[in-house]
Structure formats: structure tokens, C-alpha cells
Design a protein around this nucleic acid. Structure first.
Lengths: 215, 215
DNA sequence: AGCAAATATTGCGCGCACGCAAGTTTGCGT
DNA sequence: ACGCAAACTTGCGTGCGCGCAATATTTGCT
């Protein structure tokens, strides 16, 4: 029921998708990101170059997808998995943290931080939680179709994006100005404090939803 | 002092930038967006095609830029212009509304809604307020360098994006499901209710800033 | 006024994204 | 079991984004 698409077909599609992104990552790691043409990836996955672009709409997307995998749906699932009595804000924060606390290879991390285009592609993946997350929040607040859930979901995505950005930012030059930028703590901490900013908005939305359901 | 760059040079740059985006819009309107090649725009503005890409990094960007113009900086300026005693949330909401309440040509609107790529490019412009806005909020909260301002700014941008998305969305098919989607009211209303969701977060941030400054 | 450094423009070339119109594979009804 | 329709893959062609190196223009300095 969850997978509407029949069977063998979808299976094959997922297989080539995985093959593509893993080939992409492997090649990028062993040759450096700039020495990998899209044709190489396609060939390594046993598919025509044209087909590659039926799965990924940019060269970087495949590489990055190998890292982020199925994060989007996992986050949404993690939110709905939390018991209903937990505060929405907490459920979200925990769900996010849970997904972004995978031990990442040092090699992969270096790969992403090095190339600017890859870095951007990686940051863009944060946006992809937006839709599934909106659905999850929507369901949790009851009342579906409200723009509230969409705005909240979009804000979460934005907050995650900012946190990742701080995390990935090079130490930079600390010379002249009185700007004291925190030297970017651990990712969980960054995520937590970024999401903390939004907490009041979640509480308010949740309270409003409760009032509505009691009427 | 505000414009560090000297004079004649920057002047010319701005001139060609304007020439490019206006040419882009004009051509897109009179031929339809798909019948305008980047070479045409460049020629109409009297520069080489290569130069075009020194100013805009995609074909759509120039067209859209003709509509959004200098919105980013205007929003930031509008925020800082509000007297300090006004609630941050109100200052922001008003500043945004003020900028998005220009009477837009019907032709232009149709142009954007018609082409999916243009629509996306237009939505992306909402993100561009992020940096100037972050600076403005940062200043208003005192204490610069905090991620709080960045998260708030990013959330505002996201909210605006959602509002625009709702506004531009085609009426769609309303046949089967019980989903009753509001037929997208006026843009100001949509913006207001989108930003209202974030209001509690702003209030909390502001209050926290005040407490900090009183210590 | 003149010259050297900084900055912008241009042509060239490569790789990439994607529409389109075949060709191929899978699924479903009878 | 068979065949038709829907879904997926592939090759081709076009326009685009951008790095690079040469060229032209502006600026600050003396």
C-alpha cells in the first residue's frame, strides 16, 4: 500500500539509482571531484549518460545523494514515530538530531568541504526534508492544508541549512575586526541551538491547534 | 563611504546590469520565454554573451531580476528604518509587506506563472534577502555574530517563499480528495499569515536580547 | 600627463542538462 | 498464453554555464 508502484520495475529503478550514486561517490573519492565526468559515472553504473540525467539533475547531486541517502523520509518518519504527548518542538529536534548524527567518514567530509559546488549541493539537500516534514507536522497538528505546517517545515529546513553552513565553514581569517565568531562547535550542538530559536513558534502553533480541537 | 568602489567603473557596471535585465524582460515578454536565447539578450544590451554570464548565472535570473530589482537591500533598509521601540516581528512584517506590495503588471505575472523554470527562479529570489536581513536583525538584537539572527532571517525568507508559492500555484484540480485548499487569497494576506507563524520566535529572541542587555 | 596595477570584457573550448522521438522492457487484462 | 498499453531507456541535437588566458579599460600615484 505504501509502495503503489508494482514490483520488479520499481526494484530495478531503485537498484540503478543506488548503483549510480555509489559509483559517483567512489569515483569522486578516488580521483577527486573534478576528474569525474558524468559519462564515467554512467558507465560505472552500466547505464547510458542520458539515463543518468533521468535520475539526477546535476553531477554533484549523485555524489551528495550517496551521503544523504534517504534522510528526508527518515526524518519525517522519526517525527511521526514520537509519542503524541511529546512537545512538537522536542519531537522535531530529536528527529533531526537522530538523522544527522551518523558517524561520517572523514574522507567524505573532506571531499564535500573542499569543492564549493559540492558544498552547495550538500546544503541544498537540507531543503528536501521540507515536503515530507510538512506532511508530518500537518498530521500532528490535525487540520491539514494549513499553511502553518508548510511554514514551520520550511523554517526547520532553513535552520538546518544554517547549522550545516556554520559547521562546514572554513575557520576563515580571524585577523582585524572585532567580530568574534564561534569556531563552530559540534554539529549536534549547532543544530540544537539553531532549532531552539524556532521553538517558541512550534509551541504557539501547537497550543493553537489544541485550542481548535477542544472547541 | 557606503560605495567603496570609486565611480565611473561601478556606474558602468550597474548600467549594463540594468540594460541586461531590462532587455531580458522585454524580449521575454514579446517573444515568450522559450524563444529568447541568452545571445539575444546579450546582443540587445550591447555586450558579449560571455559578459552576460559575468552578471547573471542563468538565463532566467536576468528576467526575474528585472522584476525583483533591488528588493533585498530595500527590505533590510526598511527594517532598520523602523523605530527601535517597535516589536521586531512587526517591523519585519511591515518591511516585507511594503516591498511586496508593488503593483505588478499582469503581463509579467502571467509570464512568470506560465514557465516553470521562471517560476522557480522567481521563488529563489526570496532567498536573496537572507543575508542583508540577517545583518539588519543582528544589529537590532545587539550582539552580532549570533546564529540566532541568521536562523531568523533564513526562516523569514522561507516563509516568504512559501507564501509566494501559494500565491503562484495554479488553482489545480479540486476533484476527489477531501483536501480543501484555500484558493490562495491576496498576496499581502498570505504573507501576513505566513509570517505570523514565526512571530512567537521573534518575540522570544527579542526578549532574550533585552534581558542580556540589562545585565 | 604618464605609467603601472587593478579590474572588466571577450573568445574559445569543454562538459553538462534536457527536450524529443525512436526503441525496449514490464505490467495487466482477457 | 498473448498482446496491448504504460513506463523506462537511449541517441541525438541544442543551448547554456563557466574556467582560462588574452585583451581592453579604469584608477591611483607620482
Amino acid at each position: 500500500m505504501t509502495t503503489r508502484r508494482t514490483g520488479l520495475r520499481e526494484q530495478k529503478k531503485q537498484a540503478t539509482r543506488v548503483a549510480l550514486r555509489e559509483a559517483a561517490l567512489r569515483l569522486a573519492l578516488q580521483r577527486g571531484p573534478d576528474n569525474v565526468r558524468v559519462d564515467d559515472i554512467a558507465e560505472a553504473a552500466g547505464v547510458s549518460p542520458r539515463t543518468y540525467n533521468n535520475y539526477f539533475s546535476s553531477r554533484e547531486q549523485a555524489i551528495v545523494a550517496a551521503v544523504t541517502a534517504e534522510r528526508e523520509s527518515r526524518v519525517a518518519a522519526a517525527v511521526t514515530a514520537r509519542p503524541a504527548h511529546v512537545r512538537l518542538a522536542d519531537a522535531l529536534t530529536e528527529a533531526i538530531l537522530e538523522q544527522y548524527t551518523e558517524p561520517r567518514d572523514r574522507d567524505v567530509l573532506l571531499l564535500i568541504t573542499t569543492s564549493p559546488t559540492l558544498r552547495d549541493a550538500y546544503l541544498d539537500t537540507a531543503t528536501m526534508v521540507e515536503h515530507p516534514l510538512a506532511a508530518a507536522i500537518d498530521q500532528r497538528l490535525g487540520e491539514s492544508g494549513t499553511p502553518t505546517a508548510r511554514v514551520l517545515a520550511a523554517s526547520v529546513a532553513a535552520a538546518v541549512r544554517v547549522a550545516l553552513q556554520q559547521w562546514l565553514q572554513p575557520p576563515a581569517v580571524p585577523p582585524a575586526t572585532g567580530r568574534l565568531v564561534v569556531p563552530s562547535g559540534s554539529l549536534p550542538d549547532l543544530l540544537r541551538s539553531a532549532l531552539a530559536v524556532l521553538t517558541p513558534a512550534f509551541d504557539a502553533a501547537e497550543e493553537q491547534a489544541q485550542q481548535r480541537s477542544q472547541r
